[in-house]
């Protein structure tokens, strides 16, 4: 095993740990927006697709790059948009309701 690979695996392992630490604090109420937000995060694959597209120079390469970029872009834009739509719906009680609940 060579150094760049080892570095990448180290980064992977540490990022997994951060993921476990951060995600375990998310309340069950938000699990659907959480999943759709992480969905958008894996849309980062878009930049990989862009890099592959940048070195494509034949028909097959272009076809693969086109599909990969389209998939990645749909993933990113759709993922963030639907998460935002859902999170917008989660509202705190208004002041009046708060008092109502206390009575």
């Amino acid at each position: 095993m060579n150094t760049p690979m080892l570095t990448a695996v180290t980064v992977f392992a540490l990022a997994l740990l951060i993921g476990f630490a951060v995600i375990s604090k998310v309340p069950a109420t938000l699990h659907t927006p959480l999943m759709s937000a992480t969905n958008a995060v894996h849309g980062i694959v878009l930049i990989g697709a862009m890099l592959v597209a940048s070195s494509a120079d034949d028909a097959l390469g272009y076809a693969i790059a086109f599909a990969a970029v389209a998939f990645g872009a749909a993933n990113v834009v759709g993922g963030y948009a639907v998460s935002d739509r859902m999170l917008h719906m989660f509202r705190a009680p208004t002041r009046g309701e708060e008092e109502e609940a206390k009575r």
Partner: peptide, 13 residues
């Protein structure tokens, strides 16, 4: 590395 980190975060979640 960014793909590695982002992928790992999603994987953990």
């Amino acid at each position: 590395q960014t793909l590695v980190i982002a992928g790992a975060l999603v994987g953990a979640s």
